[in-house]
Amino acid sequence: SRSSATIAAGINMDCGTDERQYGHGGDGDAAEWKKVAELREFVEAQDPSAKEEDDFALRRFLRARDHNINKASVMLLRYLAWKRVTKPHGFISDDEVRGEIAKGRDRHQGFDRLGRPMSYLYGGRHFPVRRDHEDLKRYVVYVFDKICTKLLTGQEKFAAVIDLKGWGYANCDIRGYLAGLDIMQSYYPERLGRVFLIHVPYLFMAAWKIVYPLIDDKTKKKFVFVADRDLDATLRDAIDESQLPEEYGGKLKL
Rank of each mutant, 00 (worst) to 15 (best):
M184V: 13
V141N: 10
Y202A: 13
G154D: 06
Y139M: 01
A238Q: 07
F42G: 05
V74Q: 10
L151D: 10
V226H: 00
I69L: 01
F127I: 13
G154R: 04
G249T: 03
R116V: 06
R20A: 15
E134V: 07
E52V: 12
Y248H: 03
Q109F: 15
P88S: 02
F196R: 03
V143Q: 14
R138L: 10
F61Y: 10
E44L: 06
V211E: 00
W167R: 06
R113D: 02
D230P: 05
M75F: 08
F56H: 12
S186D: 14
K146W: 13
L197K: 02
W82F: 10
K35S: 05
Q185G: 01
I162W: 08
R60D: 04
M75G: 02
D112R: 06
H199V: 01
D132T: 02
G104M: 00
A238V: 07
A30M: 05
K165D: 09
R84Q: 11
L254W: 08
F111H: 06
K220Q: 11
D230H: 01
H67I: 03
V97M: 02
R236C: 12
F204H: 01
I215H: 05
S93Q: 11
K137P: 03
L77W: 09
R138P: 04
F127N: 02
L214P: 01
T17Q: 14
P189D: 10
Y188H: 04
S73R: 00
R98G: 09
A170L: 10
W167T: 08
Y142I: 04
E156I: 06
K150N: 12
Q109P: 07
L39T: 01
Y202K: 15
R98D: 14
G26H: 06
D27S: 12
S119I: 13
K146T: 15
R60V: 00
Q185T: 07
Y188M: 02
V129W: 09
V224R: 14
C15P: 10
C148D: 14
H89P: 00
D18N: 13
V140E: 11
W82E: 01
S186M: 12
H89G: 00
K218E: 14
G28Q: 03
R84I: 00
L77Y: 04
R20N: 15
V200F: 05
T86A: 12
D106T: 12
F204M: 09
W208Y: 08
E241Y: 09
F42T: 09
G115T: 02
G124L: 01
F42V: 11
F223Q: 04
Q109D: 13
L178T: 05
Y169C: 11
K34R: 11
S49V: 11
H108C: 11
L178V: 08
I198M: 07
K209M: 13
D29F: 00
A64H: 10
A8T: 03
I7C: 10
K251D: 06
K218F: 13
W208T: 07
E32A: 06
F196E: 04
Y202Q: 14
D106A: 14
D55C: 08
A9V: 08
K51G: 10
